[in-house]
Structure formats: structure tokens, C-alpha cells
Nucleic acid binder design. Structure first.
Length: 431
RNA sequence: GUGGUUGUGGUGAAGUGGUUAACACGGCGGAUUGUGGUUCCGUUAUACGAGGGUUCGAUCCCCUCCAGCCACCCCA
């Protein structure tokens, strides 16, 4: 019996999915198809190709890629040893793995810019909350190989177009530049100097961030930390020429296509690999977890993971969050139960004849059903009605004897008899 | 990891320290024997999240755990 931290027994209920996970049921799967179709359609327009990487990777990949001191790596990973003793981790995000695949499969050989997208489950040991789950799904895209702001603009527009095409409103696009290894250390030092004056005021978390990642302090919501941060140098003012130029270039591209965005110099992505461009798309209809999309440039990641120095940029969109937004904005696709034909049968030997009809119709791709539970004729019609059947084929004893069957139009109520051989043509001509 | 809140049948939802735990929806069957969507009737389901404690007795009181929801934190 497993025990929890306080020593109590943990009663695991077998008939209950693990905390923070969810079954996607038949009643909801249509929503996922809807999202996936939109993703594939738009990615095709943008020239991004789908990649599917394993659901787990060597733990080290995430430690190196995402960063040892990030929350994700420090306390949110599903990590275990496999039977040979390798440390394995369920992917908490997919950028590191995509980059690994890019290097391993030498995708750089094909093209100076490799454009990939992925859809799939990610795993993070977080306390569940509105819009937050332990297994959740991301749609993400990565453009690896070129450093220019035009690539940044393209990938941002990909994310934006996806969300827009779904009909989402009230989206806020936040933009920032987090600098590069050339300018960040200098900024870091200046920021620390500024914060040092009020170090005593900082909350406990921020004190521990002071050395490890002082930029995160700007993000803190504690009032005293915000006070301490007043007048802090803005990262955007300390960017090196290259980063500043890049950031300005990106804004020009976005302005050229008329995208409204906000600059937010407190936007700091929580993963270490980001350089230069960082962006986030928010919607306050989501609750506390207001980000639907987060992304940025990662010019050092490929090298960090063992490839040749190669720039890249990407984003990830939380699919459950998109679904939440679609639902509360009334934008989910209509649920349509579509059945073309219900084959009703009653009486001796009719079940075999009905099954033959059913199978024949299906072999032509017609959506057809029949009853397997021995209901009466009336119940079968009720069922056909509930299934929204357009037609009911009646195969009773009378019809069986005469070698015919009756085709009833459920909307008009009109019913015609026909020889068995004509059933398919009759149905096909009406559907 | 912390805090708040909730946990009754397939679903929504009443209720009580004590013989048969409402009601509604749904499901199934029927209203003249083989034809639906309305209506009416009947019927259905070993429902009190799990474990322990208090008590003569607990679904209702106490403790622990599990889960859902929400917030901190973090992020998609």
C-alpha cells in the first residue's frame, strides 16, 4: 500500500483515472477532430510538416534542454527508471524532443529552414486547476535553421491564424525580447544591482530567484516585489544591437500584416532555452491560467542538445485551453449524429436477411445500423429515430417471403417496397 | 507542495442520528397483435467517494485518505 507524505495510506481506486487525467469520450471526440483538422489545414498552408516523437525521452534531454533550475524540471516531471536502469521522463513539452529528432535524423540536410508541427499529450506533475492537467495536449510548431525576424513573424502568424480561424475573440498578443547570451548577463547584473537595494522586501521565492534567475522577479505578483521592481532597468533598453535590431524587425513584419500586439517587458518564459523573441497569447476568459499559447526563439538549444549551432523558434498551444475557450464562447462545432439507414427486422429468419442487407450497405460505405438486442418493431423505430436515421429498411417476415424489403423515409414517412437487389441503388440515389 | 470548496443511482438534484433514501431526466416495456419522433401508463437501477472512529444505531457527527472544482505557484 503506497503512503503519502504524511504517512497515511493512499487508497487507490481502480475505477478512477489518475489525478489530473481525463478520458476523451466519444461524445467529445468530434471536438478534437475539429481542432486537429484545423491544425493540419493551416500548417499545410504555412508549409509545416507533422512530426511525431516518442512520448518519453531520456531525462537528461529535458534537463539540458529546458534547464536544470526550471520549475518543470525541478518538480514537475514524471521520471522513472526503466528495467535497464535508464532514467526516462514522460515529455513535459515537445520542443526539446523535436530538436533532438532534428539532430538525430539530420533533418538540416534537406533545407536551410526545417518547419515542423506536432500534436500530442504532454505530462506535468502539477496540481490540477482550471485549464491545467497532468496529462494535457499541445499543438506546437518549430522552425529550425534561420535566425531572421521574418521566421519569428511567420510562426506567430501561424499561431494567430489558428486561433482566429476557430473564431476566438479577445485574444491578447504579448511580445518581448529576452536578449541573448551576449546581452543578458549585462542586463542581469544591472537588474541585480537595482534589486539589491530592496532585497529585504522581496518575498521568499524571489530571494531564491535573485541569483538563479533574477528576471523572474519582474514577473512576481507580490505587491512588495512589484514595489522593489519599480524603476528597474527594462530589458528592452539593455539589448545588444543585434537583439534590438531583431526585435524591431519582428515588429515591422507584424505591423506589415496588421497584427495588433502589446509589448510586455515583464514577459519572461519559464524555460531556459529562450533567446530574443518571447511571446504569449492570452485570453482572460480562461481563468487564472490565461495563456493559450506560449513560445519564443531558442537560438542556443540545438547546440545545447548536441547539434551544430542552429537557431530556431517555436510555440505551443494548449489544446484543452482552446477547447475551454471554444466552449464558453459557443464556438464548438455542432454535434451531429448521422445515420443513413437503420435496418429493422422482425420474425423468423429475418435477422440473417437483415444482417446481409446491413453488411452490403456498409460495404458501399453507407452508415447503417441494426438492432442486436431483439427489440420489437416499435422499439427499433424508436431507436432509429433516436439515431437520427434518414431511412429505415424494413425486413419482416412478409418481405422475406416476397423477396423484397420496404424503404421508409423517416422525414416524409413515405414507404416503398422493392426487390432486394435494388436496395443499394435506391439508397445510393437518395443519399 | 499549500489553501478554499465539494463528493447521494447513467445524469441533474432533495433529504434525515433509527423500520421501504424524494423528485426530475434518461433507459427498458406497453397503450390490440410488424412502423418512429407528442402524450399517457408501467418498470428499472444492491446511490449515500474510500477506510477507520464515536454511538444501541450513521448517508447525515469526528479523523484520515482519494477524487472533482477553484486559487497560490507555474505554465500550454
Amino acid at each position: 500500500m503506497p503512503r503519502n507524505a504524511s504517512g497515511g495510506r493512499m487508497y487507490i481506486v481502480l475505477t478512477q483515472a489518475p489525478k489530473g487525467t481525463k478520458d476523451i469520450l466519444p461524445a467529445n471526440i468530434i471536438n478534437w477532430y475539429y481542432l486537429e483538422n484545423a491544425i493540419r489545414r493551416i500548417c499545410a498552408a504555412y508549409g509545416y510538416k507533422e512530426i511525431r516523437t516518442p512520448m518519453f525521452e531520456h531525462t537528461e534531454l529535458f534537463k539540458r534542454g529546458i534547464g536544470d533550475t526550471t520549475d518543470i524540471v525541478e518538480k514537475e516531471m514524471y521520471t522513472f527508471n526503466d528495467l535497464a536502469g535508464r532514467s526516462i521522463t514522460l515529455r513535459p513539452e515537445n520542443t526539446a524532443a523535436a530538436v533532438r529528432a532534428f539532430i538525430e535524423n539530420k533533418l538540416y540536410a534537406d533545407n536551410p529552414l526545417v518547419k515542423l508541427f506536432y500534436i500530442g499529450p504532454m505530462f506535468r506533475y502539477d496540481t490540477p486547476q482550471a485549464g491545467r492537467f497532468r496529462q494535457f495536449h499541445q499543438f506546437g510548431a518549430e522552425a529550425i535553421g534561420l535566425p531572421g525576424p521574418d521566421v519569428d513573424a511567420e510562426i506567430i502568424m501561424l499561431a494567430v491564424q489558428f486561433l482566429r480561424e476557430l473564431g476566438l475573440k479577445k485574444l491578447k498578443i504579448l511580445l518581448n525580447s529576452v536578449g541573448c547570451p551576449k546581452c543578458r548577463p549585462g542586463y542581469r547584473k544591472r537588474l541585480q544591482e537595482h534589486l539589491r537595494e530592496n532585497f529585504g522586501q522581496l518575498c521568499e521565492d524571489c530571494r531564491s530567484r535573485f541569483d538563479r534567475n533574477p528576471m523572474r522577479i519582474l514577473d512576481c505578483k507580490e505587491e512588495k516585489c512589484r514595489q522593489a521592481a519599480v524603476g528597474a532597468p527594462a530589458l528592452q533598453e539593455c539589448l545588444c544591437d543585434e537583439c534590438a535590431e531583431h526585435f524591431a524587425g519582428l515588429q515591422k513584419y507584424l505591423q506589415a500584416v496588421g497584427l495588433a500586439f502589446e509589448l510586455d517587458n515583464t514577459l519572461v518564459r519559464g524555460l531556459d532555452y529562450y533567446t530574443k523573441t518571447a511571446f504569449e497569447i492570452q485570453c482572460d476568459l480562461l481563468g487564472a491560467q490565461s495563456a493559450v499559447c506560449g513560445g519564443g526563439r531558442y537560438d542556443g538549444l540545438v547546440e545545447e542538445v548536441g547539434g551544430d549551432p542552429t537557431p530556431g523558434i517555436g510555440f505551443a498551444i494548449g489544446m484543452e485551453r482552446v477547447l475551454i475557450l471554444l466552449e464558453n464562447q459557443g464556438l464548438l462545432p455542432p454535434q451531429e449524429e448521422k445515420l443513413s439507414v437503420f435496418v429493422a427486422h422482425a420474425g423468423q429468419g429475418t435477422n440473417l436477411a437483415a444482417f446481409k442487407l446491413l453488411t452490403e450497405l456498409r460495404s458501399f460505405g453507407v452508415a447503417a445500423e441494426m438492432d442486436f438486442s431483439g427489440r420489437g418493431m416499435k422499439s427499433q423505430f424508436k431507436l432509429a429515430n433516436r439515431l437520427n436515421a434518414q431511412y429505415v429498411l424494413v425486413m419482416g417476415e412478409n418481405e422475406l417471403k416476397k423477396g423484397v424489403c420496404a424503404l421508409k423515409n423517416m422525414q416524409t414517412g413515405e414507404q416503398v417496397e422493392m426487390p432486394l437487389g435494388q436496395v443499394h441503388d435506391a439508397v445510393a440515389s437518395k443519399l
